[in-house]
Design a protein around this nucleic acid. Structure first.
Lengths: 336, 336
DNA sequence: CTGTTAGCGCCTTCAG
DNA sequence: CTGAAGGCGCTAACAG
């Protein structure tokens, strides 16, 4: 391991001069700079970022605490986040938050002195937000947010849900079911609220059996939910799925049951994931039409990190307007 | 930032004792240990992993240099890698290798002193392998490998391709095309070789126009490839796609052209990605049937890192047996 | 413009 | 079993 000291010796200068060549090149006489650079080259010197971090107290590293990648939304977010962060010279450490291990993750994150935290798996619980804030590290939630005001980039989920539900109502549906996730996630809560709002505004009556809550968007969970709905005395004619991941699994299950989408039942989802525009799927979905949410979150986070004053005001609260993509999984109720 | 020195002062012991409580608890008298642990608690002490790394020279961090996540295979590999690494207490830093920026990535990787490297985007070129080896860091390639013997976990791509091609031949196809990627990747090269081998063995003749090489598995690239094939005077009756990502895009394009899969044309791919078993896709594919390749690579890498002797022998060369999953996108040639 | 000195937070001898 | 001293590789003052 060749160190800056070795370079210094080789170039016949002091070690701090080597350091300066790297950090403030202008403050070094061109000739010595060249000499130092040359010996760096010949010795194959690579600055030790760890040692630098110990002093500067920044690691050029961002922790991403993500939902599972089997949900394409999160896959897309990892992709856009890594790329965008790279543009700014930041590395991404990935964690998957599941099974209540947030504490472990935060322990790792804080010991490692990441410069910022990006998190999609935040719940509404105040205690989670407090744990994050306790780290005293710039953070930004994306896709989901906490109950209390905090830094986040989210879709206007309630409005999105109203729009999507209205789309179904406009198609003549009245027997509309909803498959959603735990209501401790802002997405699921607000998508449910928007659904109720639109349903009430339309004066439609929805039985309790039309609301199904699932633990994750696995085929198994979604399968059970779909079966419950189909086996009802009056099955729904349309299902609002609280994410595209759920919707795509639902389509899988329905097709396996020899039901047709949308002829037998309309399906739609949220997030406008890449796959939803695949010709074999053509899922009606609602999402943000612009850079990926994760990418936007990176930009906000970095802006926040650059504000030297560690105000950490928790006021960077951005809500994106949804756009509806009507495709082929939703259809008028009377036309068959 | 509360340091071990602060804890020491608070507990009335020396700083190294605090350190020992963390690293060799048995070497500290239970009473003092308790006292130290208690003051750690009250002061909210978190050990600084950066400082520790500077001495121990390990970061408990693995760099993952991955292909793009829009290819579900890589999405699945990130998922399995992060989870498996976490089991062993390792963090994953994600890089996406594209556009010739491997040098930049390696610069970052080496400066950061990661403990190991996991890479799927390796090309056959010797120079790439040399660059990796020059870092003198344990590494493991997965999915793809270098030309020279090196540490890797791969599918037996050639054999897989023979099996898949034979499946098409068994169905009566003779006009079989192949859409593949750059032949500087071992996967694409060997899948091509296996294809040729099976074709020759069957005594079938394939025109050059049936071989199409694309730059990536984007809809655009695949779209152009598919159109070229369809517009031929004698279009193929089956297409072997060198990855499921390509196959799924191909299906998308074909359906958009109002062609039916498999009635008009059979399609199959490699990797047996999750989506291929979706009822709306049902892609015939060949892949490894067992833990994900990425996960296996993690285990090998960690084993290698634990071998204290930095032999770095480049002999951990594992080849997995493929398994064929026949689904609904391939069909006998004569049955329509 | 450059060298000297000090120290980031921790672990590792080595005494005792 | 514990403390004192030294240093990992680097940056941050301060002189000169």
């Amino acid at each position: 391991m060749v160190s800056s000291k070795d370079v210094a010796k080789g170039a016949g200068v002091s070690q701090p001069t080597v350091s300066r060549v790297l950090n403030k090149p202008d403050s070094v006489k061109p000739e010595t700079r060249e000499k130092v650079l040359r010996t760096m080259q010949t010795l194959g010197y690579k600055p030790n970022l760890i040692a630098r971090s110990l002093i500067t107290n920044n690691t050029k590293t961002i922790a991403l605490i993500s939902g599972p990648v089997c949900n394409e939304f999160f896959a897309e977010s990892i992709d856009s986040i890594v790329r965008k962060a790279d543009e700014y010279g930041y590395k991404i450490i990935v964690y998957f938050d599941e099974e209540e291990n947030l504490d472990d993750i935060l322990k790792s994150v804080s010991g490692f002195n990441v410069d910022g935290i990006l998190m999609s798996s935040i719940t509404l619980e105040e205690s989670q937000l407090e744990k994050i804030k306790a780290l005293n590290t710039p953070y930004m939630f994306f896709a989901r947010r906490s109950k209390l005001k905090s830094n986040s980039v989210t879709l206007d989920d309630k409005r999105a849900s109203v729009m999507l539900t209205n789309h179904l109502i406009d198609l003549g549906h009245e027997k509309i079911a909803m498959i959603t996730g735990e209501s401790d996630r802002s997405t699921f809560l607000e998508r449910r609220q928007g659904f109720d709002k639109a349903i009430n505004a339309a004066g439609v009556d929805i039985p309790d059996s039309y609301y199904i809550k699932i633990k994750d968007s696995s085929r198994k969970e979604v399968g059970e939910a779909v079966k419950k709905l189909i086996q009802l005395y009056e099955p729904p004619t349309a299902v609002l799925c609280a994410s595209d991941a759920i919707a795509i699994s639902a389509i899988d299950v329905l097709l396996s049951m020899n039901l047709r989408v949308p002829e037998d039942i309309s399906i739609c989802g949220f997030d406008n994931v890449g796959l939803s525009s695949h010709r074999a799927i053509q899922l009606t979905s609602i999402g943000y039409d612009g850079g990926h949410i994760g990418e936007i979150a990176v930009q906000h986070l970095i802006k926040q990190m650059n504000r030297k004053e560690r105000a950490l005001e928790d006021q960077d609260y951005k809500i994106l307007s949804p756009k509806l993509f009507i495709r082929k999984t939703t259809k008028e109720i009377n036309s068959y």
